[in-house]
Every structure is written in C-alpha cells, then in structure tokens.
Write a protein that binds this DNA or RNA. Structure first.
Lengths: 200, 200
DNA sequence: GAAATTCATTAACATAGGTTAAGATTATTT
DNA sequence: AAATAATCTTAACCTATGTTAATGAATTTC
C-alpha cells in the first residue's frame, strides 16, 4: 500500500523532526527528501523483507514494532534486533553488499513507516552535507549499538542479557511474545521463563 | 616512540595503497594525510590503549597483531577482535562518544603502525570527498563484519565459531595462545582444547 | 642444559541452558 | 460462554561448557 508523502504530512514531520535533532536540514533539502519517501503500512505479521530477497529500500518507523531475525537450516529463528518508532530500518548489510538478505524483517504489530528506494535516498543524501552528517551519525550510532550487543553476547549470561533487554527496549516486554525475546537473548522460551521466575 | 612519516616511507606507501584500493586519492590529499600520521612501534605486550583512558588516536597496522579485549569486574578477559596488517584500529565507540575506552588494545607481537590524532584525521578527511568515500566504505565494512560476528555469537555453538575463526583469521591459530582464541570465542581454553580434540 | 615457568591437554565433577512433556493461563474463535 | 488454540510455567532429564586439578609439553630463565 503506497501513499504519497508531502513535507506537511504528519509522518514526514516526524521524520524531519528526528533528522533535525541530528543536523540542520534546510527547507529545500527537506522537500527533496520528502519526494523519495512513501508512506506505507504493514499489518501485524507482514514482512518488510524476507530472506532471499534483494533489499532495495530503507524505512523510517513512525509507529509499531518490527523484528529482524535470521532463520538457520534447522528452522530456528534468531532475533537480531527489534525496531521501534524513530528508528531507521533496513537489511543493511545486504543493501550495502547488493546481495539477497539473510534477514527477515517482520511486523510484530501494525506498523506505519516511511519507505524510500535506497538508490533515491543515496542520490538525495549525497547532494547536501546535512544528509552526510546525518548518515555518518546514524552509522556511528549503529556501530555503537552493535558493539554493545556484541559485548553482551560475549560476556554476559542470559539473565544479565535479559535485564539489559528490559532497559534497552522499555515497554517491549509486555508487548511481544516471550518466544521473540528469548530468541533475541539466544535462549529458549523455557529458559527465559526460568530466568524470570528466579528474578521475582 | 615517534617517527615522522613522509609520503615515500614504506609504511605510508602501504597505507596509501590500501586506501587507493577503496577510492582514488589525489597526490596532494595523500601528502596532507601523510602529515598527520606518525610511525610507531609497539613491542609485544605493550598497549595501544588501556580501558579508562580517553582515546585520541586511530592507527593503521603495517605488521603485527593487536588484540582488542574487555575486562569484566571478575577479571575475566573477553577478546572482541584481533587486528592484523592493513586494518585500521581504534577504540572506536569511545572515540566517537568522547568517553574513556572500555577496551584494552594490546600487541600480541611486535607491531608496526601508523598513528594519527583522530581530530587531525577528521580535519583532513573532511576536506576531500575521497576520504569521505573511504570512511564511508570502512564504516560499512565494519558494520558488515560486526553483523557477522553478532550473528555467530547468537546462532552458532562454540565448535562452529571456532571453525569460522580459522577462516576469518587464517594463520592466527598458530601464532597466538589458545587462551586468546578461547576468549574470542566466548569459551574457556579447556573447552577450546576439547573442541579441537574432537575435530581431529 | 637444568630448573622454572607457562601453556595445552585430559579427566572428574558442577552448572547453565536445552529438550520434552505436562499442566496452567491467556487469547481467540465460534 | 464454551471450545479451541496459543502461550507461559514448571518439572525431569540431557548436553555443552565451566571449574578445578593433575599431567605433560613447550618455552624461558638462570
């Protein structure tokens, strides 16, 4: 489902407000960028992308929850991350490498997003320093986030990772199934339930 | 130990060749960048940075091996990564956040590197598109690498991670202690020894 | 080159987390 | 509201990895 986006749609205002919290974006640049984004909705259970598909787009989440996960050959799901409002979402590695995605990105709730073709996004953002600053900052933030996740997986046991999850995604605990949280922590739902019962 | 670097030192030639494999670097930019790098050597056991220190510099490894590791409150070491020739090295998160490093970066062998103050590096690299392309590509490569490591820690058991380590760091197996490899895999040296014996 | 130190291996036992299965809740459908 | 289905909890047992300790091999020191 596609809807044109204009600079004064509520959704684009939210996008722009977020980007302007990172760097100044002149009005004409804001207008150029608005043209490449479309407003889309994903119903709960729908996919932003599936493994095997070549990603072409990036998204900005207005509301809702997405889950990024891998599926191994045995059929086990591993949740790489959750994405919530005010976050960019993409099968980033695959997009950069121009390869099929290894990730599924699925809506855990009805989700509203702005979506742009990556090529268009790159074209606009290479045209003005403000987007380059924004992209640089977002890449840095991503690296910092990944570094944190990586060190948690390396150093912390499941109970500690669970407590960290509660801090990192406030409110998500009540909204999504334990199965998803467990697969994010790298454990089974049974094990998560045990951990939760010990904490009470 | 500091030594000035010129565009025709062997070390800087190696740096430049690597960067030119990513993007065209005009001669005058190469000369500007040469001025901010100094050639340094770390003896085996010396540190590029210690946890608690504020990182100011980035390095490019000419030869040798560095180990990036965390230390938890119990005194356990966790190896985040190894760095070898033709790689940039820095306490990257801390550098971006302007915070003290949580990482130790230690030479596992006598190591030769080019080192630049991060501020100087940023100043030069913001002055020409070629460096921005290079930085962008290196950030992307870092994200891809981290994504791979993250998914391995989440999805794979220790034996599979060990086999992946052998692929990712060819030759390192014979050069560094099993203790370091084990701490990279998130297991104990005893467990690594068991895994190795089962593979034979 | 002998002694001392460090490192890798192996074994015995402990523990965290996985697996399966049975109830107990909660949510969904009719 | 009853019936069904999905989810969460608990328990019993299993497996991978941790812990400690003993031994052997390799390296360093004197």
């Amino acid at each position: 489902m596609h809807t044109n986006t204009s600079t004064d749609s509520l959704e684009y205002k939210k996008y722009l407000a977020f980007m302007r919290s990172i760097a100044d974006v002149p009005e004409d640049e804001a207008e150029k960028m608005a043209e490449v984004f479309r407003h889309e909705k994903l119903d709960k259970g729908q996919f932003f992308i599936r493994a095997g598909e070549r990603p072409q787009t990036i998204g900005f989440i207005i509301s809702g929850i997405l889950r990024l996960y891998y599926l191994n050959d045995k059929g086990d799901e591993f949740t790489k991350a959750f994405c919530v409002e005010n976050e960019m979402v993409a099968a980033y590695s695959a997009l950069l490498l121009e390869e099929p995605s290894r990730l599924f990105i699925e809506a855990l709730e009805d989700t509203s997003l702005l979506v742009a073709p990556y090529e268009s996004y790159k074209r606009i953002s290479s045209g003005h320093i403000c987007w380059q600053i924004i992209n640089q900052k977002m890449a840095e933030a991503l690296i910092i986030k990944k570094e944190k996740r990586e060190s948690a997986l390396l150093m912390d046991d499941a109970a500690k990772r669970y407590l960290q999850f509660l801090e990192d995604y406030p409110g998500l605990e009540g909204k999504v199934k334990q199965y998803y949280i467990a697969s994010y922590l790298g454990i089974t739902p049974v094990s998560l339930s045990r951990i939760r019962s010990k904490l009470k």
